[in-house]
C-alpha cells in the first residue's frame, strides 16, 4: 500500500517535472522572442498562443492520443524512440503541450511589460541583441517565474489528458490525479482525500520554492 502510494507520488513528480522542464526550455525563449520581436503575422501567432493557454487538457490528450496511436501520423512510423501510448512518455508529451503555451504566453506578457526604453538604454550601453534579450528577461523575472508557476499548476492538477494517453494503469501510468478519480469511484474516500492532500502539499511546496526564486524583487 505504502509502496504503491510512493510510486504514484514519484511518477506524478517525474511526469510533471520533465514536462515542465521541456515546456520551460521551449516556452521561455519563444515568449521572449514574441515579446520583443515585431514581424508580419505576429498578432495571429499571439492569438494562437492565447488560444493555447485556454486549450482544454482533455482535447490536448485526444490530439496526442490520435498522434501516437498505431494508425496515427507518429505511431504509424513505428519509431523505436517515439513515446508509446499508455506510457509515462506519452503523458509527458501531453503535459508539455498543455504547459508550453502557458509558459510562453505569460513570459511574453512579462517581457512586454518591461518599458521599451530599457531595451534602448541597454543597447546604448553596448549590448548585443542577445545580451539585451537576457537583460530584458532578467528585468521581467517576476513575471517569468509566474509563467512557470502557471505551467506547473496547469499540469500537476490535470487529469483528462493523462487519463487518455496514460490509461491510469496501476504501477505504470497511475498518477495522483487519476488515482484520486479511481479511489473516489471505488468509494475509498479516505485514500482519495489523502492523495488530494499530498497533491495540495506538493503544489504548495513547489510554489513556495518558486517564490523564493523570485527573490527580494517580490517584496518591493
Amino acid at each position: 500500500m505504502i509502496a504503491e502510494f510512493n510510486e504514484i507520488v514519484l511518477l506524478s513528480l517525474q511526469v510533471t517535472g520533465i514536462a515542465l522542464f521541456f515546456s520551460t526550455l521551449i516556452g521561455i525563449p519563444v515568449g521572449v522572442a514574441m515579446g520583443m520581436a515585431r514581424f508580419p503575422g505576429r498578432k495571429l501567432v499571439v492569438a494562437l498562443l492565447y488560444t493555447g493557454m485556454g486549450f482544454p487538457p482533455v482535447v490536448v490528450g485526444l490530439f496526442v492520443y490520435l498522434l501516437l496511436s498505431r494508425s496515427g501520423p507518429l505511431g504509424s512510423l513505428g519509431l523505436s524512440w517515439m513515446a508509446q501510448l499508455f506510457t509515462p512518455g506519452a503523458m509527458i508529451i501531453a503535459q508539455t503541450v498543455i504547459s508550453f503555451p502557458l509558459v510562453a504566453g505569460f513570459t511574453m506578457a512579462a517581457v512586454m511589460g518591461v518599458d521599451p526604453a530599457v531595451r534602448q538604454q541597454v543597447m546604448a550601453l553596448g549590448a548585443t541583441s542577445r545580451q539585451a534579450a537576457l537583460t530584458i528577461l532578467s528585468e521581467a523575472r517576476i513575471g517569468v517565474i509566474v509563467s512557470i508557476i502557471a505551467g506547473f499548476g496547469g499540469i500537476i492538477s490535470e487529469v483528462g489528458a493523462v487519463m487518455l494517453v496514460g490509461g491510469n494503469i496501476e504501477g505504470r501510468t497511475r498518477v495522483l490525479t487519476t488515482a484520486i478519480v479511481l479511489e473516489t469511484r471505488k468509494g475509498n474516500f479516505d485514500l482519495a482525500l489523502a492523495l488530494g492532500g499530498v497533491l495540495l502539499g506538493i503544489t504548495f511546496i513547489a510554489n513556495l520554492a518558486m517564490l523564493r526564486l523570485q527573490g527580494k524583487s517580490f517584496d518591493r
Partner: peptide
C-alpha cells in the same frame, strides 16, 4: 565602434 558611444537619456532607466 558602437561601444565607443553611449547615451544618458532623460529618464535614467536603471535596472532592477
Amino acid at each position: 565602434k558602437r561601444r565607443s558611444v553611449t547615451t544618458v537619456f532623460q529618464r535614467p532607466m536603471l535596472l532592477e
